[in-house]
Design a protein around this nucleic acid. Structure first.
Lengths: 279, 279
DNA sequence: TATAGTAATGACTAATCAGTCATTTGTCAA
DNA sequence: TTGACAAATGACTGATTAGTCATTACTATA
């Protein structure tokens, strides 16, 4: 399991620098100081490795964004917190973000595209719930256009620190985009993404994650994790899921315990949605 | 010369569909119905082919944009015409635009990146002159931020028809982005791209194209082109460049004659800048 | 220490690729 | 018809790749 993480970390660096296809398995194993055979003990193929990377990081980005949208009670601060968190997360995982942008349009692996698309839809869902809360009905016929602009801003402005090494002033960036977003939200009268085009945004993304699937992931993570607090919190949350005994305060507290563990972000996200802890 | 165009056309399709690296020379030649050896009679390498494609299409995009900015006299319509023309050009050359976006971040070839960057700066220059004309001083400390947003809009919204097959309503798209751009231009108070960050935008791009270089390119094109009007216009313009004899009206007319020939866009751009036909 | 079972190795295979070049085919003028 | 030159061919080379597997090294228990 430790070996798997080593490979993922080292491969991440190489993929970000050279691209996925331009990086050979040999290069990765040399950089890790292990043999080629050892690589295939951890991953069935090179493709499986990149899919693991996508899951690992998109889970963090997705749940960071979802969390901030659902936990920020002050509407005045919400948009700022959203941009701040989103760019903070992208910056923290710069190498992954580079891979994401570089390989997004390369259809070398169908499952890769599908996975990225899946998480992208989740993020879109968070953004939608945020703008509906902030601008309510006044923005109803322009809201899909607005989502698209917000995602566009995220993409466009992240290039600055990802590829041009521009020093990142997170506070200023968030402030600047808050202003822009507010301007567009409050004064746009001619949306391009109209009612007709929304279909495009709504294609898949109907599959709900079932309780059984959540339990399965939890059991897996309980094995992996070593930190005592997080591990016990997970075990208790699993029991709670099988047989509700604790009140909402305890559950929320337990969720808070695991929220920042990189391996628990996904569970945290799934459970929050399951219990509908919106704020 | 005809062979070269055949290869470029067929390769363009394949690159757009599969990506540059994923397309083999064998595939291109099979698709053209020629042998592998014949390919290397037209291009020294696979890299030379993509560089030729970049030049061919970026010249058209760059000069389309520059022309519309410099020839639209009505300020009220300028921004609309800009977006309309830019997206029209991107749509017309969809296959190339796909390649551009797919390979932009892949540093497989340094010269490719350099070339794209070069034309990008030219477009940026056109945008800057446009917004300085439209909003003058009022937008002075936010103008680089505004350029970045405009380029971001172009990127973001072109994805819709390039990768999602969204039917393109050019008029609506232009209207929608005009509104957005005006909102940002007139009300932004917190730019992210500040005075300090402008340096990034100003790095290279000092090399002026000399008269000799223009003449060289013209001679080359005169050989290539068969249409009588365009050919004669080029010959006259070349004479004019060596020894000015005609008045500005004739020169402008001759420029207009060659403006829409796909092989003359670059010359047209260079000559307009040389004579400073700003409107 | 002996043994069984697991982890790790790296030489190997089969496939793919860009680019070359000896050979063949086609096209002129004499 | 001939001969000279140019255009076109495709088998070939050498390099690189993902993935395999027989062999070796290591570890823990008896």
């Amino acid at each position: 399991m430790i070996k798997k993480q080593l490979i993922m970390e080292k491969a991440l660096e190489l993929f970000a620098k050279q691209g996925f296809e331009a990086t050979s398995v040999q290069q990765i194993t040399d950089y890790c100081g292990i043999s080629k055979g050892a690589f295939y003990l951890s991953f069935k193929s090179k493709d499986e490795l990149i899919l693991a990377l996508v899951d690992h990081f998109m889970i963090q980005l997705t749940s960071d964004i979802d969390y901030v949208v659902n936990s920020t009670s002050d509407d005045q601060k919400l948009l700022y917190e959203f941009y701040y968190t989103a760019f903070h997360s992208l910056y923290k995982h710069s190498n992954f973000a580079k891979i994401l942008i570089k390989e997004q349009t390369h259809s070398f692996n169908e499952e890769f595209i599908f996975k990225v698309h899946y998480y992208d839809k989740l993020i879109e869902k968070s953004i939608l719930s945020m703008i509906e809360r902030l601008y309510s009905i006044e923005v109803n016929h322009t809201k899909y256009d607005l989502i698209y602009c917000i995602k566009g801003f995220m993409n466009t402005y992240s290039h600055l620190f990802l590829f041009y090494n521009v020093p990142l002033d997170l506070d200023l960036l968030a402030q600047s985009l808050v202003e822009k977003t507010n301007l567009l939200a409050r004064h746009t009268t001619i949306p391009f993404i109209s009612q007709e085009l929304i279909q495009m945004f709504k294609q898949p993304m109907n599959e709900e994650v079932t309780k059984e699937q959540i339990l399965e992931i939890m059991e897996q993570k309980i094995e992996e994790i070593e930190e005592p607090i997080e591990k016990e919190s997970l075990i208790l949350l699993k029991q709670q899921l099988l047989e509700p005994t604790f009140g909402p305060a305890i559950v929320k507290g337990l969720l808070e315990n695991i929220r920042n563990h990189p391996h628990c972000k996904w569970i945290s996200y799934l459970l929050r949605n399951y219990y509908e802890f919106k704020n």
